[in-house]
């Protein structure tokens, strides 16, 4: 069947809106890339432009391996590593804690389970920023400043994940639980053999959200890490652009390239998990 498409002005309008939207999203990245490809002097003189330079390899070298400060520990590689640990630790921790909390609330006849759930839920109203001083004090007193544990553990209690997993578990048919009981699966076996595999789409969706959330953490790492070897990318980049003193130029090339590198892991995670993400939030294979 051939349908000859008639030319319509509305199609042009639709497409121009879409193209403009796309440009709006892409141009900042192109700008970053452009500034990362020229010398810092060039950028300082001309600002961002459209002419690409040949400094990309050099800037990449600096971005990944050059370190500032006294210890020389905060290279790009090191910061990337720290960010990875924070991102993964944050996401995995939140999923594990959220799933287990939801499991307890949904499947065990606890006294005050509903109350407990709503208490957890209300903590959504108390983000990190509100409780940052007491949290800091606790971490400090536990001697966890400048450690990965200190960076991750205070953040992994998650009302969001608990809520999503609770909703998900409640939709799993009761008969499945009963079949498993008759099949001799105890609480731990049921969780590991049935609930976790069933939740894999949900886990993937949560992982994306939480990884990006963790990766983008700025305030908490700034508070907790003073050791340069513990810096994450997001906070390290800021540090690089800040050394604009005396005759030093800010290292535009290096910091912009590092920004692009900082964007990449979340982007890759989204691309990789996209199919699961949509599945997890929309359908369920129960």
């Amino acid at each position: 069947m051939t349908v000859s498409k008639r030319f319509r002005w509305s199609a042009v309008l639709d497409h121009s809106i879409l193209i403009m939207g796309a440009l709006l999203m892409i141009l900042p990245v192109v700008m970053l890339l452009q500034m990362a490809s020229t010398t810092d002097v060039h950028t300082m003189k001309n600002g961002p432009g459209l002419v690409f330079g040949d400094q990309l390899p050099l800037n990449f070298q600096k971005a990944m391996f050059k370190a500032d400060g006294f210890t020389g520990a905060n290279t790009g590689v090191r910061m990337l590593y720290n960010s990875m640990i924070l991102g993964f630790g944050f996401a995995i921790g939140k999923i594990v804690v959220g799933m287990m909390a939801a499991y307890a609330i949904v499947y065990f006849r606890l006294r005050f389970a509903t109350l407990a759930f709503w208490v957890i839920f209300t903590t959504l109203l108390l983000p990190l920023e509100v409780r940052i001083l007491p949290s800091y004090e606790i971490v400090q007193k536990l001697g966890m400043l400048n450690t990965y544990q200190g960076l991750i553990i205070p953040l992994i209690a998650s009302a969001t994940a608990t809520f999503f997993f609770r909703q998900f578990f409640r939709a799993i048919p009761e008969e499945l639980v009963e079949a498993a009981r008759i099949d001799g699966a105890g609480p731990i076996k049921f969780f590991v053999d049935i609930l976790v595999p069933l939740s894999r789409t949900m886990i993937a969706a949560m992982f994306i959200i939480m990884f990006i959330y963790g990766w983008n953490q700025y305030l908490w790492p700034t508070m907790i890490t003073t050791d340069e070897g513990m810096y994450t990318l997001v906070r390290g980049i800021k540090q690089i652009t800040q050394v604009n003193e005396g005759t030093n130029l800010p290292e535009y090339g290096r910091s912009n390239l590092l920004s692009i590198i900082a964007i990449l892991p979340p982007v890759l995670i989204v691309i990789f998990f996209q199919r699961w993400f949509v599945k997890g939030l929309t359908e369920s294979d129960k």
Partner: peptide
């Protein structure tokens, strides 16, 4: 006695098969 130890087997209305297995 726990259901698993009653030496019984049950067939459910909605089959209750484990969807991922």
């Amino acid at each position: 006695v726990d259901p698993a130890d009653r030496d019984i087997a049950m067939v459910f209305q909605n089959y209750a098969l484990y969807p991922h297995m």
